[in-house]
Design a protein around this nucleic acid. Structure first.
Lengths: 332, 332
DNA sequence: GTGAAAGCGCTAACAG
DNA sequence: CTGTTAGCGCTTTCAC
């Protein structure tokens, strides 16, 4: 069996309290006792029972991170950064996958008691306003989801980012700029769509939705299929703004299979700056959100709620982003 | 404050035990009482305190998964599958990242008390035999790491897989087959290297290590750099076996930048069949381990240790793998 | 400075 | 069938 505080106390000939004091770094312990306790600690290889400690303290030491799918590069990268950021505050991270379905998201959110985790970072895809539990633990929303709920939120300015991406295409002289990624079923993509339309309008280009290709999922295969549809049109576009890098990678493939070249015949811009996008052929021009800043901000928000002013109004943090210009729009 | 079992009991006018029985689905409860308890449960919105329950039961409901980096596609995909497999057994998964350094791996492994998690799946990169703690909780090793320690282990047959990949290249008529990925500092790549060398030998080709390019990390940039070195040689290879897909993707880029074509001038094979590899240009021929089977097997092993015969000798499971033939070796 | 004792919320005996 | 009673291992009053 595992060594308990009591075992150590008996061995050192002191009370549990004293051992607890030593273990928790309490300063005022008689040197003599401290020495004996430390010896016993070392001899037994004592390790605190985190569960018991947390039961007593009323915290768990865990944070939950809810994402659609870890196999999607953006979420894999974000999860890695969140884990790193959480670690600095002494938290371990528990990951839940929802596949982006409302059912799974609701089930996950419902299971998040204050006993299980101290807080949670949510990347919802389909959750609606009423689905959120009443603030037992601090929740932070990640990403652009448009749901209207009074929670802390961290996301880059998606409208501006999309605007920047499309303006880049405009400045390169493209006139028929399509978009891949609108998703009518979910509010998810509305901001990027808005930024796209606004940029066209600002450029004096016809900003209808006729050049917008919807997709069901933000996966490579959907990007490829959408690009095929675009290329089959009477007047194919001369540039495409994809709502994420995965879609853009798929689009790249369809363009190549069609015998056309990027960026000569069609320019392509992605979104997320996943590591993969720097190595595709051609490398993708893409919106690069400061992912580390997103992770840090989210962890800080949770930490703030837990320590400071519990009932402050919801905060919204917008980390910086930039446009990473690569070969898919500008040939080196 | 959160609702406790006691609150519900008071409200329903029964004892905690009865409420506990209802909550835990114990069959024999007087219908009348059951009804009242269920009402109270619903009225209060009671949710069990997992921490307390586990403290009592001596289990935690958590499993740890240790990987180098979640942003590496293979690990992102594996983590996703592990979480899914664990969920079916009622476990939540805690993810720890080590960057593949021995220090961080050791720190992680040391922190894995029986109080924190019920078991752990480890994907060590640099850990050595003596670094493992003495079996307080069931540990399962993932991947080909060559360390010699008496633990359950799940990995495809890396020697055979590498052999298959290289034999494919041989059967296509290639004679100067290089390898990218040997890593002298770590034992990690020794099996794939062995398979590569064996395949060359079996084919009657000179199997020296002269065509082997070492890398420090299995990242795209290292693959690109290694391929550059290969292309700068007096006699460049006509095919390359990369020890993972990331290296292969990097290699693909260097070949393109060099003005050569894959597979016409150089054929390339990867390893892992990450989703990205199906969409690179050209799509990668790659070894495809059955990742879902790996995840399932690992979870089953932990489960087995926890329920069944604790002290059975270590088991080694070798899930199936296959060769996914794509454009980087055979033009469609 | 340190010990004794209470109890965090829950489940597992053990009576009844 | 159900109530009472002990703890799980820890931290925290509160005395001494």
């Amino acid at each position: 069996m595992a060594v308990t505080l009591k075992d150590v106390a008996t061995m050192a000939g002191v009370s549990v309290k004293t051992v607890s004091n030593v273990v928790n770094g309490y300063a005022f312990v008689k040197p003599e006792n401290r020495r004996r306790v430390e010896e016993a600690l070392a001899a037994t290889g004592y390790r605190p029972n985190v569960g018991a400690r947390n039961l007593r303290r009323g915290r768990t030491g865990f944070l939950a991170l809810m994402v659609p799918e870890l196999s999607i590069p953006y979420f894999g990268e974000m999860a890695g950064l969140v884990i790193t950021a959480a670690q600095r505050r002494g938290w371990s991270v528990l990951i839940e996958q929802t596949q982006g379905t409302r059912d799974r998201e609701r089930a996950t959110v419902d299971s998040l008691g204050p006993h299980l985790v101290d807080g949670a970072l949510l990347h919802p895809e389909a959750l609606e306003a009423g689905d959120f539990p009443d603030g037992e633990i601090p929740l932070v929303l990640l990403g652009e989801h448009a749901v209207d709920v009074a929670l802390d939120r961290v996301a880059i300015d998606n409208v501006q980012a999309a605007h920047l991406a499309v303006s880049h295409l405009v400045s390169l002289g493209h006139r028929r700029i399509a978009a891949i990624g609108a998703n009518p079923k979910r509010g998810t993509s509305s901001l990027r769509l808005a930024g796209y339309l606004a940029a066209l309008e600002d450029a004096g280009l016809p900003s209808s939705e006729s050049l917008v290709e919807p997709v069901a999922k933000y996966h490579r295969s959907e990007g490829a299929a959408a690009m095929k549809r675009l290329l089959a049109r009477e007047e194919p576009p001369d540039a495409v703004f994809c709502f994420n890098d995965l879609l853009a990678v798929g689009a790249l493939r369809s363009v190549a299979e069609h015998g056309l070249r990027v960026p000569h015949d069609i320019a392509i811009v992605g979104f997320d700056n996943t590591e993969e996008s720097a190595f595709s052929l051609p490398a993708l021009t893409t919106i690069s959100p400061d992912k580390a800043a997103i992770a840090e901000a989210a962890i800080d928000l949770i930490h703030g709620r837990l320590t400071g002013t519990e009932n402050a109004p919801p905060r919204e943090v917008q980390p910086p982003f930039s446009l990473e210009i690569r070969e898919s729009t500008v040939l080196r």
